[in-house]
């Protein structure tokens, strides 16, 4: 198993406002590292899906209530 640090620059959590988005981002960060997604050929798809979900949660007006 590779011991190199996983690059997580693509997942920016600083600007996330809603708690749900922050929690989801944390889950994805853990999942990404735990499952070595960076070595998966579909890793771009994974990142795109994460960004889409975070964007939807953040853009939801009642995101904090979700």
């Amino acid at each position: 198993m590779s011991s190199e640090p996983v690059n997580m620059d693509w997942l920016k959590t600083d600007g996330l406002k809603s708690v749900v988005a922050q929690r989801f981002a944390k889950f994805c960060a853990d999942d990404f590292k735990a499952n070595n997604v960076s070595e998966d050929p579909d890793s771009d798809l994974y990142k795109e899906a994460v960004q889409l979900i975070l964007g939807r949660i953040e853009s939801s007006v009642s995101g904090d209530k979700l």
Binding site: D31, D42, A49, L52
Partner: peptide, 13 residues
Amino acid sequence: KVREKGRELIKKA
């Protein structure tokens, strides 16, 4: 594909 992957992630989360 992105939404399929998104649903998979949502399910896991």
